[in-house]
Computed example of a mutant assay.
Amino acid sequence: MLTIGDFARHGRVSVRMLRHYDAVGLLRPARVDPSSGYRYYEAAQLARLNRVIALKDLGFTLEQVRSILDEDIGTDELRGMLRLRRAELESAAAEAAARLARVEARLRSIESEGTMPTEDVVVTSLPPVRLAELTGIAGGFEPRDIGPVVGPLFAEVCRRLAAGGGTPVGPALARYEDAPEPGAIIVRAGVPVCGGDLPGLRVTDLPGVPLAATVIHRGSMDGVLPTAHALARWIEANGYRPVGYAREVSLDCPDDPAGWVTELQQPVTGA
């Protein structure tokens, strides 16, 4: 028989690891001295240790390893477990590749501009939201076209909401669509609500978005174009494609527009 130290050296694992395998019932010693508590192993147990190490190296948990070794799992079930593990690894590799692409894009931006980008883009999903909203038409999508339309719309939404006894449950949201007239834009200004019908307001259940690139713009929306352009460059550099117009969520709107905080939410399709 081999002492735990000798067995550990032959198996190329630590004594601490062997004690842990014993504690979880994965690899018990062949004999434990009743007086000293010393553990002893048989050389034949190296085969089981090697299988444990090999299965762990494939990414299986110790509980899964014990099931494979002790529960007489058939070939079909083991094949299914391995295929599932392969899918998990492929997903992790895809996520790592996407993260690497974002790092490379950030590096290119720093190298071309000589500074660290100030706009941090986050890719996330957008939850569904129920909006009480009003609609208007803007002559174009420039800030000078949108501002005179969306501001009064939000003010009127808040006035009608208060008059109808409604209460906002989240920050105001502006969204845009192409109008039938060439170059014109449909402007929808709304606030999240919980209730149903509200007098003088259209209540819309806006579906969630599986994937969106988001960035924070600070200051008046008259100066939003540099932030919007930075977001567009990031989307292109990272292999995404925009879907429709970006939403604008007003996170903070003090009296001074210089203190406004707005999140641009651009729906995208995957890289």
Rank of each mutant, 00 (worst) to 15 (best):
T167S: 08
P257D: 13
G270H: 10
A228H: 07
D252A: 06
R99S: 15
T118Y: 00
D22L: 04
A23D: 12
G208D: 12
V24H: 11
I186T: 09
D57G: 11
E177R: 15
L84S: 12
R159L: 06
R233Q: 03
G239C: 08
H20M: 01
G244M: 04
A98G: 09
D197S: 02
L82Y: 15
T118R: 07
G165M: 13
A179H: 12
A97V: 13
E119S: 10
R28K: 11
T214N: 03
L58I: 09
I4L: 10
L198D: 04
P168F: 11
A172G: 12
G37M: 04
G196H: 05
G195Q: 14
R144V: 02
G190N: 01
L211W: 03
V261M: 04
L126K: 03
S36N: 04
T115D: 14
A98Q: 10
Y240M: 07
G165Q: 02
E248A: 01
R86T: 11
R9V: 00
V32M: 00
I146Y: 10
S125H: 06
E177S: 11
H217D: 05
P207K: 02
A237I: 10
H229S: 08
E236D: 04
E88S: 11
L78I: 00
T227N: 04
R102H: 03
G136H: 11
T262I: 06
A189H: 04
G140N: 08
G259S: 02
D72P: 00
R51F: 15
R51N: 03
L107D: 09
W260G: 08
V268E: 03
L78R: 05
V121E: 03
P143D: 11
D76Q: 01
V15R: 09
I53Y: 00
G11K: 05
V249C: 04
G196C: 06
G59D: 10
A93H: 14
R9D: 06
T214A: 01
G165E: 03
P34N: 00
M17T: 13
S14R: 15
C158E: 02
A8M: 01
T227L: 05
E181N: 10
I4N: 09
A246V: 09
R241N: 09
